[in-house]
Design a protein around this nucleic acid. Structure first.
Lengths: 314, 314
DNA sequence: CGTTTTCTGTGAATATTACTCACAATAAAT
DNA sequence: ATTTATTGTGAGTAATATTCACAGAAAACG
């Protein structure tokens, strides 16, 4: 993405508080009271926005006004904008600019299967730093989205304006139910039903190349998302390619096994920030914790299965 | 929460584009070029914000300027605000106010265990309406958070300013591993290790009262979150109280069973909106889909187990 | 049904603010 | 030492925001 921003179309900003108050009260007069202005000022402010946008924001009928669809849309953005700015001013006055909230953008699958289950521990260790987790994939615009950091699989070109810090190299490999592997598949991958995810259709090919394995599928099945393919593997429907972080807890709990090990996929997981992570103590804290939680995942080391399961509960 | 807003502390809004451009370019002169103003105008705009906030936003040294911590914080909010407003204006011009994005705020546990696995189907059925899912619990301020709808368990007073639409009555009951129930517990709840979640410490008591069951725990264990207690149940560590939507898929897949059935907890799950759901076609679409996905969950009906799992492992 | 009340819109005057210009100050680059 | 690229600032000016006073319109009221 280029660094050149297309020209913004903004409403007259100074008129926004008047609009927001009018929308909230559904009355120009009461908005005027709240802002210690005259109703005429409110009327003109609203009219100014309407002129600029070329759209009516309010339906004026009888002695009442209410928002049009355009007005509702603008109110949503205005309200969010004003509250966001107010929060920033608050933070600046109270903490000299450091927000006690760290906004993290993370890919949904990693967030669900790896990050969220661990966040509780982070909260426990850092009760005064709240994490606001936003699920989003693909290119991220930290500033536009109001995020401090993003976690991404670096499988696309990440804008030069950001600092990317490597977290770990992704490893992936076939995973399936432990019983299934022994009894049904007899330890032979070519007996397996291969589960594919449309979001990464080449996952099996990538693994075969990286590991040098020549097996072929006994049968195949396609799912819309990794999530479903992995769920299907847990349910003994077949064997899926599991990226290590997404199946780490399943391996650890013994719900899945990785009989043939994992191989690097060639992609790194990275932390995306505006400045080097050590510049912001909150980000520094989060980054260090991430690395500690990741442990030796960078090397593709599998979690030991020896401590979990019925009869040997932790 | 009262409807009376505490007074906002806002920076001078009209000066924000100048500040944002200056911060982006790390130069007042280039910001002036971009905005077709003189560098003096930028200087004054920045100084005006600094005066109002009583904080320096830029470090001016040598021939370069860069942001202070306060400046970075304000930039984040400013950038988000301006982009949000720009997006609103775009939507207004293109779609007459209707955004092609529906922002949904949902409780994390429900989102992870029920909503997210189903969202793929929604996207498939409605490819032109994108869902932006935000995980958050407790009271919600739709406008301040920029959300269109919120899904919540109605266990607290929801502000009168919102429309709440009932989705289903929550049902909950003991859930555990199917083998465990027969072999270890011998079908008797009093033989079980009861798994508690600190987020809902009275869950077992509520269920006992609702179902008239008099059982007592053989042993007990506490977890910080429902998520962990349920995961522990899947791992055969004991029996947890599972709210139906949070264990629906586990029951359906046979990972868990609900041997004693579910009883209503007295709480409803609700959809929170600013206007009645049928006023906004996007919300209407989402609501109808939610109700269809929820199926007969309102009556506490358990998913049939008879169609899942190789060999019908139940 | 007329009168009053309660809204919002608007022309003209005014107060305020924003912007520019020209110059000053600073320090790096040459 | 001179030039160059940067930001700060006083004074004048242009632009705009706000008010005041009045107008219009429709609900509320007796």
């Amino acid at each position: 993405m280029s660094n050149i921003h297309r020209k913004r179309h903004l409403p007259p900003l100074a008129a926004l508080p008047a609009f927001e108050a009018a929308a909230r009260h559904q009355s120009f007069s009461r908005a005027a009271e709240e802002l210690h202005l005259t109703h005429g000022a409110i009327s003109r402010a609203v009219a100014q926005i309407e002129d600029r946008l070329g759209v009516e924001l309010f339906v004026r009928r009888n002695r009442r006004v209410w928002l049009t669809a355009a007005g509702e849309r603008l109110l949503k953005a205005t309200s969010a904008a004003l509250n966001g700015l107010d929060g920033a001013v608050e933070d600046i006055h109270r903490h000299d600019g450091a927000s006690p909230i760290l906004t993290v953008s993370c890919e949904p699958s990693l967030a669900m299967r790896w990050l969220m289950p661990r966040l509780g521990r982070f909260r426990e260790a850092n009760p005064d730093l709240n994490i606001d987790l936003r699920l989003a994939g693909g290119p991220v615009d930290l500033l536009a989205d109001g995020c401090d950091v993003a976690i991404r699989r670096a499988d696309y070109g990440i804008s030069e304006q950001y600092i990317t810090t490597r977290l770990w190299a992704e490893h992936a490999g076939p995973v399936c139910d432990p019983d299934c592997w022994e009894t049904i598949l007899a330890g032979n991958l070519s007996n397996a039903r291969w589960l594919h995810a449309r979001t990464r259709p080449d996952a099996w090919e990538v693994w075969k190349r990286a590991s040098g394995n020549e097996a072929t599928a006994a049968s195949e099945q396609y799912f819309d998302h990794f999530f479903f393919a992995l769920q299907a593997a847990v349910n003994r429907l077949g064997t899926a390619i599991g990226p290590l972080p997404l199946v780490y807890d399943d391996l650890k709990a013994g719900r899945l096994i990785s009989p043939l090990g994992m191989a690097p996929t060639g992609y790194d997981y990275v932390l995306i920030t505006l400045d080097p992570p050590d510049r912001d103590p909150r980000i520094s804290l989060f980054f260090d914790w991430l690395m500690a939680e990741a442990g030796d995942m960078d090397g593709g080391a599998l979690p030991g299965n020896d401590m979990v399961g019925p009869g040997k509960k932790i």
